[in-house]
Computed example of a mutant assay.
Amino acid sequence: MRQEALARRRSLSPKENETFSEAICRRLRSLPACCMAKRIFAFASMADEVQLYGWIAAALSEGKTVALPLVRGKGVMAAVRVRALSDLVLGDYGILTVREDQREIVDPASLDCVLVPGAAFSRKGERLGLGAGFYDRFLGEKATQAQRIAVAFSCQIMEDLPLEAHDIMMHGIVTENETIFCR
């Protein structure tokens, strides 16, 4: 299922990715969980993921605290504050992160909202990640109070996904076509 979902995501043309990402970011800007949040954990988008950089820049200009993942070890990540997109450098796994001299760790317990990437999601809020467990650990152990909003293209929505005891459910999913409220 993971490979099928990732193939769907990769099948989008760069123009489709751009157009769909813009639509998703517009939806995020009107979503109460994001509008009211003061401290948001986002992600630095890989090429085939929803592109959040414009949304991050807008959130920063509104005075919101935005944090991004910092890989700390196998399956472990921290939240590091980003003050400007120009502070991002290539990190582990080829993912952008805040450059070392600008890093300020954000307490995950202070986060209001977490924007969650993944390979696939179901309308019930099930998530299929990339297999390393970073987000399940982070959400289940460190940011339990935060609203969990999946950010995905509609082609990543599947009927049912396998769920394990450690898998964390989403509160909502935002695609280019709709906002799905799961809980």
Rank of each mutant, 00 (worst) to 15 (best):
M1L: 06
R2S: 01
R2Q: 03
E4H: 05
A5E: 09
A5M: 05
A5Q: 14
A7D: 08
A7F: 00
R8D: 14
R8W: 04
R10A: 08
S11R: 02
L12I: 05
P14T: 05
P14N: 06
P14M: 08
P14S: 06
E16D: 09
F20A: 05
S21A: 02
S21F: 10
E22Y: 02
R26E: 13
R27I: 07
R27H: 12
R29W: 04
L31R: 13
P32M: 08
C35M: 10
M36G: 09
K38Q: 11
R39T: 03
I40M: 14
F41W: 03
A42T: 12
F43M: 13
S45F: 07
S45K: 04
M46R: 08
A47V: 06
D48T: 03
D48R: 06
E49D: 05
E49Y: 10
V50K: 00
L52F: 03
L52R: 14
L52P: 13
L52E: 14
Y53G: 07
W55L: 05
A58I: 10
A59T: 05
S61H: 12
S61P: 15
S61V: 06
E62Q: 14
E62H: 15
G63W: 05
L68D: 02
L70V: 07
V71K: 04
V71I: 07
V71W: 02
R72G: 14
G75L: 04
V76C: 14
V76E: 15
M77A: 09
A79T: 07
A79W: 15
V82L: 11
R83C: 15
A84H: 15
D87R: 08
L88C: 02
D92E: 09
D92F: 11
G94R: 09
G94L: 04
T97F: 01
T97Y: 01
T97G: 04
V98Y: 12
V98H: 09
R99H: 10
R99N: 12
D101S: 02
D101R: 02
Q102Y: 11
R103L: 00
R103M: 00
V106K: 01
V106F: 00
D107S: 03
A109P: 10
L111E: 01
V114D: 11
L115E: 06
V116K: 08
P117F: 00
G118P: 14
A119R: 04
A119N: 04
S122N: 13
K124S: 11
K124Q: 15
K124A: 13
E126T: 09
R127W: 01
R127G: 06
L130Y: 12
G131C: 04
G131H: 06
A132P: 09
G133K: 12
R137P: 06
L139S: 07
K142C: 15
A143T: 11
A143G: 10
A146T: 02
Q147E: 12
R148I: 00
A152I: 05
F153Y: 09
S154R: 10
C155S: 12
Q156L: 11
M158V: 01
M158H: 12
D160F: 00
L161N: 01
P162W: 01
L163H: 13
L163Y: 15
A165W: 05
H166V: 05
D167F: 01
D167Y: 03
M169Y: 02
M170Y: 06
H171F: 01
V174M: 02
E176V: 13
E178C: 03
T179L: 00
T179C: 01
I180D: 14
I180Q: 11
F181A: 10
F181Y: 12
F181K: 14
F181V: 14
C182S: 07
